[in-house]
Design a binder for these strands. Structure first.
Lengths: 222, 222
DNA sequence: TTTCTACTCGGTATTTGTACGGATTAGTCC
DNA sequence: GGACTAATCCGTACAAATACCGAGTAGAAA
């Protein structure tokens, strides 16, 4: 009964900069429920440690010599999904953030994060939730927003033309579209011609790109 | 000097369910720095109010009779970007969440959110940050993750075939591709044939979809 | 050596798309 | 009424893609 009060969270830190590990430990020292049970300086050591000790949480840097933190995260999520992962990164680069998201890490924060945010992140992650810092979210947002900005191009197309573009995207030929809309194949051709002209494209490929940029198909970025 | 202690946050609530407005107000009653300066039940009233009173924060429901909360948000962000917006939704539907993100709202939470999370959200938003609840984030995540899962299809294509797919995506015709690669147009045709077969598609349209799914073009969803 | 795969090339025919030209009808806006 | 646009339709011609058949070579794997 003595040790039943709070089950501590067993943490492994993976980072090739000892200074950073020390900093993290300092931030967590006062928290009784957080116990750093290991520190390693590269991905392979981390894998070994995880296999043997099964920590509750892995805090890892993105860039490490050899296996990167992202690869490590992928490995963890594939082989030990119960181990939560909080990725820490120096740069809030678009591509890196994307990779982190894809790697299915439970959270991501920047290295300059303060104590309170770090603790929040750990709390939410260990509560089976996720935590992504504001900066990281902003990157996600801008990525998603990008589409929106272009969207007005669509306005040059008439409703009928848009309808046709959508059908083209469904891999229908002009003839099939004609049947479906009860109009002549010639009409469809004319629409196509006008569409290509309005969208400044020469071939269907260009048209497809336009359609995706303008969300004219359920087939976009989602 | 008397009113300088804390500048209160002036809030407008827009929701067509009075009960919900009352609930929100109850949650915020104890917080001195939060002042509800207005309540409206549809988008047009909200617009009028915002023009006249310039609240610091708008809390709005997604679905309202007439102008939806999302349209309202878009209008706010376009005409009064200083007014922060927290969108509250009953459903964590994929499409709705997408719309909310696109509308550039600073935050989004579900209607069943507890007091603490609501206050957190307001705090982060008014600190020029953003707040999206865990459930909402999860939806974003699954959207982004989807790509990853499919990605292995590419392996069925040979390096040369992938090369050709990429060139097709750059709007080159078979003949142009042949010139570029110093091979016969027939060879390109054969590759095309094999590619279509391997990818189970009939036309370039289908192929393009495949290419995007498999990141064979810089042109993907990001 | 044989087998297999990736890559290469060819012929013929058909289907589909694009480029060029033209036209009519219905409706809106001034 | 006149100007404009969206939507409809047609002909001719060429370009491009797809379907179908075939085959040879180089290199790796068995």
């Amino acid at each position: 009964m003595n040790s039943e009060e709070v089950k501590p969270i067993r943490i492994l830190i993976a980072d090739d900069h000892q200074m950073f590990i020390d900093g993290l430990k300092a931030l967590m020292r006062r928290e009784k429920e957080l116990v750093v049970i290991g520190e390693v300086s590269n991905g392979n050591q981390a894998m070994q440690f995880i296999i043997q000790e099964r920590p509750d949480l892995l805090i890892t840097d993105v860039s490490m010599p050899g296996m990167s933190g992202i690869e490590l995260t992928r490995w963890v999520k594939q082989h030990h999904p119960c181990v939560k992962v909080l990725v820490v990164t120096m740069y809030n680069d678009r591509e890196i953030v994307n990779e982190i998201l894809m790697s299915e890490a439970e959270g991501c924060i920047l290295k300059n994060t303060g104590k309170q945010e770090l603790l929040n992140a750990i709390k939410r992650i260990t509560d089976d939730s996720t935590y992504y810092s504001t900066e990281v979210l902003n990157i996600m947002m801008t990525r998603l927003k990008k589409h929106k900005t272009i969207e007005k191009n669509t306005s040059v197309l008439t409703p009928r033309e848009i309808e046709i573009v959508k059908l083209i995207m469904e891999e229908l030929s002009s003839e099939e579209i004609a049947e479906k809309l009860f109009i002549s194949k010639r009409t469809v051709d004319t629409h196509r011609k006008n569409i290509l002209q309005k969208t400044n494209t020469r071939t269907i490929v260009g048209l497809l790109k336009f359609a995706i940029e303008n969300n004219l198909t359920e087939y976009n970025s989602d």
